[in-house]
Write a protein that binds this DNA or RNA. Structure first.
Length: 822
DNA sequence: CCGATT
DNA sequence: AACGGCTAATCGG
């Protein structure tokens, strides 16, 4: 068995172990193209961290660093090697000691001890995880094919893998990404007589699996007749958990997929497994599944198997661009892949179905399997984006799938810093009121009205292009060589200057991103949309754009390693400068500027042609520096602007309406109000009929009065952002929660509250009830509230544009509805 | 009615 | 563990 081996494989999980001698060995887990499991052991890199020292005393510091010794319970910890190097710390030249140690935990032991070194100034990179360090320094790109050369190890019993190799050489083979990883999705259902299931008393009822290799299964412990083939009955919850472990060992997926599995499925399974003393040791190295802390959340890690929880990815990366109100599997799947939920079963009635047994159980297993299949399908559409982001950020998929924008940017920069001899700065220690503010974007006041023929231009990637064109970088701020060069416009009464001679680290890597994206866009034009390459390249383009756009926000975020409020303020200062300049130029050229926001400008043509406008834009572009560019965004035959900023509707030539800012796009409005508003906008912009618009409002009011609305039409969604007792002001959703808590229902911060305003006495809060309580008690909704506080306000502002006074619309509807208003 | 909170 | 600008409803004194 053992012997020299060369293998090509896709690495996807990384950690380290210590040898009996106390040396750190990196473990790389991956799969070959044929799906064989591989573990690579690599002892070629040594853990280290930096100590920044006074340049004049660095020799003394070095000598003393070599003599450092700390006695711990197990052994004596000391540096194994120390080098003196010249590096930069956010642009400033520094002298550093690079202190190598035996094992990563030695860093924690020595990091305070080094403060005694002569000329000590600071330490750096002592908080970079060893496996992250390995990926950065060895330039191992996750999910991207590499060749390993080394000795095959006899690993009987140590690993549930096909190959274990002691690496001598690792070589990246370029861009080829893992093409067909084995993905297994799972989902559990639990007993929940009081709403939220309780881990200590309520059992797991069933567990489902669905894989991209066609495997489908539901395991449950209550029998019913003529069960579908995919159902496997066991005798008890204990047997169900044992079966779960057995299936995981046998299936050995590359990726294990869940939806909210970090916060729900795994903590639950672990708690129930503990009760029966079952070991969840299906990892590739037979270790138990581990729950780790990540900020306020917990995450479930399985060595050698990538546990991907789709939920945090959706919330962190996709939520801002999504329309859904709630991030349940059902609504997310509906928006992203157009799949509707299974009728008849819901989270709330799970325990009743289980108790009923028989046919109800059939519904339950179908529902349970459906959820695993939905999760798998979601991954089908998201995996390419996730994989591309993972390669770009250069961290394990396990980590990247849980990262926020800020974290993605940070690791993207960390990976590239060393090429510029830049040390990765420490995380700022942020206490108290840490969000210092600075002046943001400019919003040009809208001219309210309904217009024909509007053209929209925007600056292509405004903030990234400003960072690049004006060399905005914390490493080049107030540089020695050109202190007065490249001054920003005034912002908060100050100006900042950036080096003219040398390009900064961040503008350089950002420009590389933008250039790569431009090349991909060119390639995409030449490929067929159905092509496999097309989806990969568009995912790559999306990943590049995401990171580029997040760079500005990263500057302004106080917990960033490269935090720079000066850079953030400089970016918005230039942004205001350019948009104001374009607005002034457009007015000079006799265009009617209707509105502008941050990076966009909207012009009413009023006799001029689109060609005239394009000629104007061309003239603007000739003046713009660097890669900055004003781009034609669209022509709209009809548009509506209200008196408020950030609220408008555009109708394109195909009759499609784009809506910004209106209640229609907000979740804290009832559907009846939003749909009425949408229909009214449609009547005004497309049908061009005020009469129809009034009729639509009349219909909505009639339906509300007659009780003909569906329950979904009157539910209002609002997020519970903190614990109920921490609220200063009790809004309707909080008041509804307080009432429901008295019935024993449980709520957690972050949860989206569904409530309804009912008939009765008192304030709106007094009359608000959680949907469940509303249904259980058969309460009656307050049609007056939905008419006067939802439907009418949503349309009144639109009618003001048509010259109606505040209450005039109400009057107009009233005359058509005589008798309805008192 | 108005500032604070959401 | 991304920014600021902005609107609007509702609470609560």
């Amino acid at each position: 068995m053992a012997g020299r081996t060369i293998l090509e494989f896709y690495p996807f999980d990384f950690d380290y172990i210590n040898t009996p001698e106390g040396r750190a060995i990196i473990r790389v887990f991956g799969s070959t193209k044929e799906g064989k499991k591989i573990v690579v052991l690599d002892g070629s890199i040594q853990p280290y961290f930096y100590v920044i020292v006074n340049a004049e005393r660095s020799d003394v510091a070095l000598a003393q660093a070599l003599r450092l010794k700390v006695k711990t319970e197990e052994r004596i910890v000391q540096p194994v090697k120390v080098e003196i190097l010249k590096r930069n710390l956010v642009g400033a030249p520094v002298t550093v000691l690079k202190i190598f140690v035996q094992t990563p935990s030695d860093i924690a032991v020595l990091k305070d001890e080094v403060k005694t070194l002569p000329g000590y100034m600071d330490r750096a990179e002592s908080d970079i995880n060893f496996y992250k360090r390995y990926m950065i320094d060895k330039e191992i790109v996750p999910l991207s094919k590499i060749r390993v050369e080394g000795e095959e190890v006899d690993h009987k019993g140590r690993y549930n893998a096909d190959y274990v190799i002691n690496a001598e050489k690792m070589e990246d083979l370029g861009e080829e990404t893992i093409s067909a990883p084995h993905i297994l999705a799972f989902d559990i259902e639990t007993y929940n007589p009081i709403g939220t299931p309780r881990m200590d008393t309520d059992p797991i009822l069933m567990i489902s699996f669905a894989s991209n290799k066609g495997y489908e299964k539901v395991v449950t412990w209550k029998k019913f007749h003529n069960a579908p083939d995919y159902v496997e009955f066991v005798d008890s919850e204990m047997d169900l958990i044992n079966k779960f472990v057995e299936i995981m060992r046998k299936e050995k997926p590359d990726i294990l997929l869940g939806y909210n599995s970090d916060n729900f499925d795994f903590p639950y399974i672990i708690a129930r497994a503990n009760k029966y003393k079952i070991k969840l040791d299906f990892a590739i190295d037979h270790s138990n599944i581990k729950m780790a802390k990540k900020g306020r959340d917990v995450i479930a890690r399985i060595t050698g198997i990538i546990h991907v929880d789709i939920y945090p990815f959706v919330v962190n990366m996709l939520a801002p661009t999504m329309r859904t109100e709630i991030f349940s599997l059902d609504s997310v799947a509906e928006e992203l892949i157009g799949e509707k939920k299974k009728e008849g079963v819901s989270w709330e009635n799970m325990h009743t179905l289980w108790d009923a047994g028989g046919e109800s159980l059939r519904k339950m297993v179908e529902y349970n399997l459906h959820d695993s299949k939905l999760t798998l399908k979601l991954m089908n559409t998201l995996s390419k984006t996730m994989f591309e982001l993972t390669k770009l950020v250069n961290q394990p998929l396990f980590d990247v799938s849980r990262m926020t924008y800020g974290q993605c940017v940070e690791w993207f920069l960390a990976k590239r810093a060393s090429k510029f001899l830049e040390i990765i700065p420490n995380k700022p220690i942020v206490t108290g009121t840490w969000s210092r503010t600075y002046e943001g974007a400019y919003v040009h006041p809208p001219k309210p009205g309904i217009y024909d023929n509007i053209v929209v231009y925007d600056f292509r990637s405004l903030y990234p292009s400003i960072i690049i064109s004006h060399n905005i970088c914390p490493t080049k701020l107030f540089c020695e060589c050109c202190k007065d060069g490249n001054k920003t416009p005034e912002t908060d009464g100050k100006t900042y200057s950036y080096c003219k001679r040398e390009k900064g680290f961040i503008p350089t890597v950002l420009e590389d991103l933008i250039n790569r994206r431009a090349r991909i866009k060119e390639m995409l034009k030449k490929i067929d949309k159905g092509d496999e390459d097309y989806s990969i390249l568009s995912a790559r383009s999306y990943a590049l754009k995401t990171i580029a756009n997040a760079m500005y926000g990263y500057f302004g975020f106080a917990k960033s390693r490269w935090y720079s409020i000066e850079c953030a303020a400089s970016v918005t200062a230039w942004g205001r400068h350019y948009i104001k300049q374009v607005i002034a130029d457009a007015e000079k050229a006799k265009f009617n500027v209707i509105y502008g926001d941050t990076d966009s400008i909207m012009l009413s043509l009023e006799g001029k042609t689109v060609g005239d406008a394009n000629m104007f834009a061309e003239k603007v572009n000739k003046k713009l520096p660097g890669i900055m560019e004003l781009e034609f965004q669209g022509f709209y035959p009809r548009a509506l602007f209200v008196a408020a900023k950030k609220k408008y509707a555009l109708a394109d030539e195909k009759g499609r309406i784009t809506i910004k800012g209106f209640e229609f796009v907000r979740r804290d409005w009832s559907r009846i109000a939003k749909e009425t508003q949408m229909a009214v906008l449609n009547a005004l912009l497309i049908e061009k009929s005020e009469d129809n618009a009034v009729k639509i409002i009349k219909n909505a009011i009639n339906k509300l009065k007659a009780g003909e609305v569906k329950i979904e039409d009157i539910v209002i969604y609002t997020q519970l952002t903190k614990k109920v007792e921490h609220y200063d002001s009790i809004g309707p959703h909080v008041a509804a929660v307080i009432k429901a808590q008295k019935l024993g229902l449980k709520f957690e911060p972050g949860q989206i509250i569904k409530y309804i305003v009912t008939k009765g006495e008192g304030s709106i809060s007094d009359k608000s009830y959680i949907l469940k309580e509303y249904l259980d008690k058969g309460l009656e909704y307050d049609s007056e509230y939905y008419i006067n506080n939802q439907v009418l306000p949503a349309v009144e502002r639109i009618f003001e544009v048509l010259g109606y006074e505040k209450d005039e619309l109400k009057g107009k509807v009233q005359t058509k509805l005589a008798g309805f208003f008192k």
